[in-house]
Design a protein around this nucleic acid. Structure first.
Lengths: 364, 364
DNA sequence: TTGTATGCGTTATCAG
DNA sequence: CTGATAACGCATACAA
């Protein structure tokens, strides 16, 4: 393997000049540069990346962490596309992406490269404050996806959950004339779902309508045994605690089976809403199946809408009306913001909401 | 930041001894080791990863490439989970995974780390011989997922397509008594689909049954305008060229809409099979929708089976009978094999088939 | 515009 | 068992 020394020798210049020439420094005469470049090319010279990174103390690597209970899940319909967007952007800006996932509840990321080689890190999924503090302590800039913590001076990227859910509610109420709308959700301790819930409530309030309420439904645990990672949105929307308004159905787990069971329970009460807003497509699909299995028609008897626009939303019949979350855009933006942070680490807290799109299909 | 020098000084030993002690070398007296370790820990010493990698000429990084036409697609229901498995295994064995995706039809991977820092590479999706040669030239061990090329001395990992498809056919023929089974496929130039096709044909042959044939169907281009990346399987199953047996319906594109259109066309011929074997779940879902839209019942009038077991296969009604591809296992195995190759680069060509599972649901 | 000399933090070589 | 010293390949402060 050719090294800089060899190229310099061939060009009869010093290593320094050769180095500069290849970095296109203005300090080197154009002729000299051309010569050196030519020689480098002819001998297929490639700088030793490790040596270069070491000397400059810059690796050009960004860590992408998925924080999960026990195993990585890029197979998840949300994170896969986010990663795609991140990779696309990183590549464009000449950064590498290295992957990491926590083991169990240990959020320290002991892996060597994660310790001291990454120039920044994207924390995806539900980042615990512990992980954030850890990176902050090491002085590694970070961007968080999908959640907002109380930690200071961080950049957060998330879907415009409130806006998307509000649009969906407008569609249901204004376009379709529904005014008894059930709410089916995963635990509200997830910020995304909480915001969708607020939009659900506010849409009623703004329309001067009461929120669908059903005495025969149990009082579900709104937080599902977890607690909010931040009270930022509680404050923002004027609450001290997650308010119980109407009769939200809260399930644990994201699987459609959970939605199925909940709606079965709802049907058993005999007091059906005319529409169900499920906080995720997965739950919505379960809801549709439960309705259909009970002999009810969707959307004629009960309309169902979801959120996310996962692939499965067109596999169900009727195809699901939902909100398309721009996952790739979330990934891209995360990298862009991280790069800004790498350039200039001193920044204020910043929350960026990524626009989404209402997708009206047949289920509403 | 503490460096090795500092630790050595504090322990009143040389850098060398300190280095050895921390690497748990048998050359160092236990007492000395203990002392040095203690000091290192007390001062929260972390070796400089870049310096270490540089000095040892070992980065501990494995490249994971997705070869696609224009953009990364970890959001794909296949590659996301493969990546999860790979990451899990890599982490277990103290390797890092760095991501790469080609730009357009340029398969050279110019990214610095991909050039000379990775110790091995996993090539996923449809690896062109060009990419393989490129890495081979640079002496980087590689494992290929999902395709077998004519290139020599490579390790290939793939789903046991033939076995899975054969099982599915047995299910259709033996368990369900079907003997007129249509075949709906994406272009057969994809090795995976070709193998499923061979199993489809062979199952008929082994049962002494003719393959479903329908004159009114057009003669689709079997390779879909592409050519096979290898004739390995052609030879293995005794063909010179992809044989046209029965009336395979070949669509271009993996979207369910393509399956929908093809089956619509099939219905129009008026000569329906009693079952359809779709080469992917996505196509199968389109098939089910087309059948249902034409007023036909699945599986009573026409049974439909798919392959892959993507999430959507339980979102359709009836839920899809399919073959579950062990994607995570594919990823894990790829990394394990790659590590063997890194240890000992001289190895013979090796093809590993990952076992799959027949999943019988309601569509058959 | 070019070159010299040195540093980067670790590991490896060789001598003790 | 331990230590002095030399790489490793590149980048850069400083000198010319």
């Amino acid at each position: 393997m050719m090294k800089l020394d060899d190229i310099a020798a061939l060009a009869k210049v010093s290593k320094t000049t050769a180095s500069r020439a290849l970095a296109d420094s203005p300090l080197v005469k154009e002729e000299t540069k051309a010569l050196i470049r030519e020689i480098a090319k002819a001998h297929n010279y490639k700088p030793n990346t490790l040596a270069s990174a070491f000397a400059r103390k810059k690796s050009g690597i960004i860590g992408f962490c998925l924080l999960n209970k026990d195993h990585p899940s890029f197979g998840h319909p949300f994170f896969g596309p986010v990663l795609d967007g991140a990779l696309e952007q990183a590549r464009k800006d000449n950064y590498h992406i290295i992957l990491a996932a926590n083991k169990g509840s240990d959020y320290v990321f002991e892996e060597p490269f994660m310790q001291d080689c990454i120039e920044g890190v994207v924390l995806s999924s539900f980042a615990p404050a512990k992980a954030v503090q850890e990176f902050k302590k090491r002085g590694i800039p970070q961007v968080l996806i999908n959640d907002v913590l109380n930690t200071e001076n961080n950049t957060f990227i998330m879907d415009d959950n409130y806006g998307g859910a509000y649009q969906l509610m407008q569609h249901l109420m204004k376009d379709k004339g529904h005014f008894r709308i059930g709410f089916l959700t995963d635990r509200l301790s997830h910020t995304s779902y909480l915001l969708r819930y607020f939009a659900y409530i506010d849409a009623h309030r703004d329309a001067g309508l009461p929120v669908y309420s059903n005495d025969k439904l149990p009082l579900f645990d709104l937080e599902g045994g977890f607690s909010l990672s931040s009270d930022y949105y509680l404050k923002k929307y004027g609450y001290d605690d997650i308010p119980r308004i109407g009769s939200p159905m809260v399930v644990v787990g994201v699987k459609s089976a959970a939605g199925y069971e909940a709606v079965k329970q709802l049907i058993a009460t005999g007091d059906l809403p005319s529409a169900i807003f499920a906080v995720s497509d997965s739950l919505a699909i379960g809801a549709i199946h439960a309705l259909q299995d009970a002999g009810l028609r969707v959307p004629e008897d009960v309309a169902v809408v979801g959120y996310d626009d996962i692939i499965s939303s067109t596999a169900v019949r009727p195809a699901l009306t939902t909100v398309r979350v721009n996952r790739k855009e979330i990934g891209r933006t995360a990298i862009q913001e991280l790069e800004k942070l790498i350039e200039n680490p001193e920044q204020e807290t910043k929350i960026i909401y990524i626009k989404n799109n209402l997708i009206v299909r047949k289920s509403s």
